[in-house]
Simulated assay, not measured.
Amino acid sequence: MSGGVSNFGRIAFDDLRWEGRRYAVTNLQTAGAGLGSETPKRARFTSIDILPKQQVEEGAEPLLYAATSPEATAGAYYGPGGRFGLVGPTITARITRRALNTEANRRLWTEADLTAAVA
């Protein structure tokens, strides 16, 4: 499973648990003590309606399609077919060059096995 941001992000193998980096500030962090009050504080960027967004059901559709549809193809990549590939109905999406990096894929699975103590 992936998201549109994966096209721009980088895997920091030396800090997979984000212990040395800070997450982006979210509305939950900025609302803080005001959360649950009648007028919660909001981060400035949440009031700007230019970012693509969709409901949870639409967001889960590509994953559910890949996992359950008899029409899904093994090894294919499914994602949203709308604006910037971030929203919209499910389509067969292009697998990015970064996702095909066999060395990074191998290393990520190795780290996941070690973290989950599976191997």
Rank of each mutant, 00 (worst) to 15 (best):
G85W: 00
I50D: 05
S69M: 09
T110P: 04
A116W: 12
N27H: 13
E58W: 06
D15T: 08
A74I: 14
A33C: 04
L51Q: 12
E103D: 11
A66R: 11
G79I: 00
T39M: 14
E57Q: 10
F45W: 15
A116L: 15
G81S: 02
A66E: 07
P80W: 00
D14V: 04
M1D: 02
L114D: 13
F13M: 10
R94I: 03
G34L: 07
V25C: 06
A104R: 06
E71F: 12
A76L: 01
E58D: 15
R22E: 13
P52I: 02
D49W: 15
K41I: 05
L108C: 04
A99T: 04
R98S: 07
S69T: 05
L16K: 05
T68Y: 08
V87E: 05
A74S: 13
A116N: 06
T39P: 11
A99Q: 10
N105P: 08
R98D: 09
T39W: 12
N27F: 07
I11A: 01
L16A: 06
L108V: 07
L16E: 07
G79H: 03
A117L: 11
S69C: 09
L114P: 03
G34H: 05
A74E: 11
R107G: 01
L51Y: 14
A119L: 13
P89N: 12
I91V: 15
F84W: 08
L35I: 00
F84T: 03
G85C: 00
Q54G: 09
E57D: 12
G36H: 01
T102G: 03
A104K: 05
M1Q: 00
I50V: 07
D14F: 01
G79P: 00
S37I: 02
T68K: 07
T92G: 02
E71M: 10
R22C: 06
T46D: 07
A74P: 14
P80M: 02
P40G: 02
E61M: 12
K53E: 14
A60N: 00
A112S: 14
R97V: 06
L16C: 08
E103M: 05
G75W: 03
A117Q: 13
A119F: 12
R10M: 05
R97D: 11
V25F: 09
N27L: 04
G81H: 02
A60Y: 00
L16F: 08
S47F: 13
T90N: 00
I91C: 04
G85T: 00
R98F: 07
E38F: 04
Y23P: 14
L28V: 15
P52Q: 03
R42W: 10
T110R: 14
T30F: 14
P80F: 04
E57V: 01
A99F: 10
A72D: 09
G32Y: 01
P80K: 03
A43G: 06
R97A: 09
A117S: 11
T73I: 12
A12R: 15
S47P: 04
T110K: 14
G81F: 03
